[in-house]
Computed example of a mutant assay.
Amino acid sequence: MRVLVVEDDRRLAGLLVRGLAAENFVTDVEYNGLDGLWRAGEHAYDVIVLDVMLPGLNGYEVCGRLRAAQVWTPILMLTAMDSELDEAEGLDIGADDYLTKPFSYLVLVARLRALARRGATPRPAVLRAGDLELDPAMRTCRRGDTPIMLTAKEFAVLEFLLRHRDRVVSKAEIIAGVWDEAREPEPNLVEVYISSLRRKIDTPFGRRTIITVRGTGYRLGSREGLLA
């Protein structure tokens, strides 16, 4: 397995190289974000270990640029910041896993192997269906060049539909994916949010992106139709 480690702490980077070599990993190292970005884009790796706090470009910027360039190598981010917001930012921007320093070396190796088994499947940071775009990290939505203002719950419902685009999802699936179990709404509330989304992302643009599948649920198509 070939691994790229991007870590500015040279002592930690050296320990990782030696430890991974003992597990039969072939490891390359870069010590700043710019060099890490270049190497990750120019060479094929099974997985990338990416520190958050890097000189040049930080880990979030490196990860975001790789995903924007459609480099889908699995990325495990390392950080000394033990915060749910930090973890959420990394995952939203396209990282696959997250470890807080100090970490268990055994856990690191196990997660690297799991990521390598998953492979480099596309996981776009920006979700798209035609000219409709949703950026979970920046919390923005637009159709073409037109920004669309959404409430927090509208955003969450649209994100769920986009992550399952071209597939029919039931009201129960939407509720399970968007609402907290302790505040589970009535199924009819899903209809309210679907109607609201249509008024914002479809009707003004003459589109029909969210389709009702009678008796089953809803489907957001990657190739939207036009309103009659």
Score class of each variant (00 low, 15 high):
R123G: 03
R118I: 03
R123W: 12
R11H: 11
N188V: 13
L15Q: 07
L162A: 01
T79C: 01
I210R: 01
V192Y: 13
A228N: 10
M138Q: 15
L54G: 13
T79R: 06
A116Q: 14
G14E: 05
R118Q: 14
G215S: 06
E61Q: 15
E224G: 05
P147D: 13
P147N: 12
E191P: 01
L150S: 10
V52E: 06
L91W: 08
G217S: 01
P185L: 07
R214H: 12
R139L: 09
V62R: 07
V190L: 08
A88D: 12
V190G: 03
I175K: 06
P122M: 01
P185E: 04
T151C: 13
V213T: 12
E154T: 01
E224C: 04
P204M: 06
V178S: 00
G215Q: 00
V47D: 11
K153N: 10
P124W: 15
G177W: 02
G221H: 12
D180F: 00
W72Y: 09
L132V: 03
L54E: 10
L50K: 02
D96R: 10
T209E: 10
D92H: 02
S104Y: 03
L220F: 06
E191A: 12
A156I: 06
T216L: 08
R199V: 04
L150D: 14
D92Y: 05
L162N: 10
D96G: 03
C63K: 09
T73I: 02
R65D: 04
E42N: 13
L37H: 12
W72D: 07
G215I: 01
T73Q: 01
R139I: 09
E61D: 14
P147K: 14
E89D: 13
D28C: 05
A120L: 00
E191R: 14
D202W: 10
A22Y: 06
L34W: 07
R214L: 09
A110G: 13
V157Y: 08
R2D: 11
T216M: 14
S195N: 15
V168D: 12
E224H: 09
R2S: 13
R111P: 03
I75A: 13
D35S: 14
R111W: 00
I194N: 03
P147W: 12
H164Y: 09
D35R: 15
V71H: 15
